[in-house]
Design a protein around this nucleic acid. Sequence first.
RNA 1: GUCCCAGUAGCUCAGCUGGAUAGAGCAACAGCCUUCUAAGCUGUGGGUCGGGAGUUCGAAUCUCUCCUGGGACGCCA
Length: 560
Amino acid sequence: MEKHMLALQLSHILGEPYSREWVYEQLELPKKESFGDLAFPCFPLAKEFKKNPKLIADELAEKLKHPHITKAESAGGYVNVFLDQSFFTEETLKEVLANDRDYGSHNFGAEKTVVLDMSSPNIAKPFSMGHLRSTIIGNAISNLAEKCGFETVKVNYIGDYGTQFGKLVAAYHRWGDDDAIQADPLTELTRIYVKFHEEAKTDPTLIDEGRTCFKKLEDADPEVLELWRWFKDVSLQEFDRIYDLLGVTFDLTRGEAYYNDKMEGVIKRIAGAGLLEESDGAQVVRLDEQELPPCLIRKSNGTTTYATRDLAAAIDRYESFHFAESLYLVGHEQTLHFQQVKYVLDKMDLPWANDMHHVPFGMILKDGKKMSTRAGKTVLLEQVLQEAIDRARENIADKNPDLKNQEQVARQVGVGSVIFHDLKHDRTHDVEFSLDDMLSFEGNTGPYVQYTHVRTKSLLKKAGYEKEDAEVKLVDEKAWPLIKLVRAFPKVVKESYEQYDPSRIAKYLLDVSRSFNHYYAHNQILDSDQEAGRLTLIYSVNLILQNGLEILGIEAPDQM
RNA sequence: GUCCCAGUAGCUCAGCUGGAUAGAGCAACAGCCUUCUAAGCUGUGGGUCGGGAGUUCGAAUCUCUCCUGGGACGCCA
């Protein structure tokens, strides 16, 4: 609101050709506290006025008068504006108290549904760090969507189909060991899957054998079907353990195989729309106008592809949920695939195809290279989580040995550090895997934010703070940077959702934490002359940290 | 070969869709616990924003080009 206010004032002074909107776009947040709270650069005006920007700034600063602006000064071609701190402090604290737990929420998503395709691990393969990104980012975006008023449907689209399972079955026929699979399913299944690919290097007939086995699966051969079910069951059990640890739930867990009997119908629809063409014995949809390679619908041996299944799934999702947005939390490397799927639906005259968005993310690299199951080069998420929890436990024993619920807090902090580490990075960038980095509890980390939350909680508890007798008046120059951050929260939530970018929340929480800790270290809060007002500020910070961590899917313990 | 993405401090990353002296954290070094949890705070050192050209009042940010790394490019998903 202060930005609109200033834009209006400046536009008024400048006159007709300079609209409020234009001025609003020009306004910036100064980089330094000493430059005030808002700044208007005068360089664009210099040319038109044929005047030195400094002179323009001088004049504007002189003319700018408003009850809620305490000072306007000209510096380096800018008009630096200082806001009335006590007025805006009071406004901010009132706003927080009025909304309380809903502070930062919006309702522009009301009556609309967002479907998220997330996590989507492949059965018979270990849950890797790569799946973590999809799970964690998807979960956070889902939480953001709910903050904005949307209904969400989280779908775990399990990879339980395709030639890879033919290969797995073929591998099982050769080297399968039932006892070993019972004992440690994913490890054993991965072992024979890796072995299959190694052997296939010298014996290419194995690949055909795999394809044949998949064909049998698609034709519902009882023996193959039985194996497939078994692999699937044991895998899902393993995945559930991890979802429990992460605290992530789904509204729908559905495998690709679910769409098996819907394939022919979809293919008929595509053909009916006159899109299907024969090519090298396979059936494809050409996407020449989009300058994309054709989308493969049916392979030459008659089996379907994952594109076909994604098409069937997309149609099914629309018919089930009539989504406003359908998001796919899937790695960067599948960008082309989702473009193809979208265009095929578009060509089928399904207008909602435009509401589908691939939300890509970068890969987790090991020594600068992609980690691949086939090469047996993956880092297992569960081991990482356990290691994180162990380190958190050691920390507690060292720093707060009398803490109650140590095991629970160790879990919250350990898991929180892993989740936060993932979410603080720009979604689309690749990240180099580093255990030490991920399990660090100092600096820009999840535990740092959690610890800050604990501090606010502890202050409120000690003071016996009650929201009912909150004081919204606070004159405290030192608190101003923190107040400004509190003010920004709703906007950060909105932008974070619109950009599908949880890292904005993570970075914001670090800013809030840093600002709070600085304030905390330099100002007495309890038993100070403005204790009541300061506590309301602490309450606001507490609310934001708790809310923000919740959005990221991280728990906030009261003590640690 | 074609297309896409990235390159910022020793390391990991920010940099708000073109603006003021490019910022955090880690690591290193030096301080701060008889006061609200030291998982914290304060300070120091550390940069040719991959190279080059262009656009303009102004470029880490936009355009072009080159270098480097990564990814994708119908019968894997």
